[in-house]
Amino acid sequence: MPEITRAEVAHLANLARIDLSDDELDHLAPQLSVILESVASISGVAGDDVPPTSHALPLTNVFREDVVTPGLTPEQALSGAPAVEEQRFSVPRILGEEQ
């Protein structure tokens, strides 16, 4: 029976960058276990010979011409930003490494 432990929820929340409180962790772990138990019912329903469907309709090769089209002005681009400096998005200090 699949079960998500509290520690696993904490790990997943970390991957998903959500700072869950202890209360939320306590609350979510059993709820997710219930949901997971239910959705796990599909394991084994489809055999190895069944191809997966990632797209509802079988379209392929939808391409754009390589031409420049009008985008946003910097003012529009930055209009929703919590903070702006030097026509750039101002973000809190970045830990870790440069990309």
């Binding site: 390589d66 031409v67 009008p70 985008g71 946003l72 030097e86």
Partner: peptide, 27 residues
């Protein structure tokens, strides 16, 4: 060195003023 970006029609020139080559998609 395409004229436009991978998934939108924004230009790709090097050294442009910041955030002048953006659109809803690449933003």
């Amino acid at each position: 060195n395409t004229n436009s970006k991978m998934f939108c029609g924004c230009p790709t020139e090097f050294g442009a003023e910041p955030n002048t080559q953006v659109c809803p998609t690449c933003l």
